Simulated scan of single mutants.
Amino acid sequence: MNIVFSLDQIQEVAKKIIARNPKKIILFNGEMGVGKTTLIKELCKTLGIKDATSSPTFSLVNEYYTSNNQIVYHFDFYRLNKETEALDMGVDDYLYSGNWCFIEWSEKIAGLIPEEHSIVNIQLKADGRRNLELI
């Protein structure tokens, strides 16, 4: 799936992603500031999370509950120096829990990502819109 969108269309984009029935582990790739966290926040709303969501840059993982008690984990591994840091925090337990796992900066833990996952690539276009590819 490929979509070109502006940020005011992000709600529709999130709905389209969920409608495609992606794997529950989704890797979000893109430059800093391209809108990965913004899209993840909208995906959380689409899944029924009512609480405020934020980037887990310092905590590494945030845990949210949907209105029907599904768990969504949002990871930001930007600050990691080694994969062993993710192992120390118990990342395997999260990744193999069967719950939604939205992962920013997944290249920092490339050797730990389960084979079954989806990928969202986002690129900023010159006109300010985003190009999104769901694999």
Rank of each mutant, 00 (worst) to 15 (best):
M1S: 13
V4H: 00
L7C: 14
I10G: 02
E12V: 13
E12C: 14
K16A: 13
I17H: 00
I18P: 00
I18G: 08
A19D: 08
A19T: 06
R20T: 04
R20V: 04
P22T: 00
K23H: 06
I26K: 00
F28D: 08
M32D: 11
V34F: 05
G35H: 04
T37K: 05
T37R: 05
I40Y: 03
L43E: 07
T46S: 02
G48F: 10
D51Y: 02
D51C: 06
D51R: 15
T53G: 12
L60E: 10
V61E: 09
N62R: 07
Y65M: 04
N69C: 06
I71K: 12
V72L: 15
Y73A: 04
Y73S: 10
H74R: 04
H74Y: 05
F77Q: 05
E85P: 14
G90E: 07
V91A: 01
Y94W: 12
Y96W: 09
Y96V: 05
G98Q: 08
G98K: 12
N99M: 07
W100E: 03
I109N: 01
G111N: 12
L112E: 11
P114I: 15
H117W: 01
H117E: 00
I119W: 02
I119K: 03
V120P: 02
I122W: 05
Q123N: 06
L124M: 09
K125L: 09
A126T: 13
G128Y: 02
R129S: 15
R130V: 03
N131M: 10
E133P: 10
L134H: 05
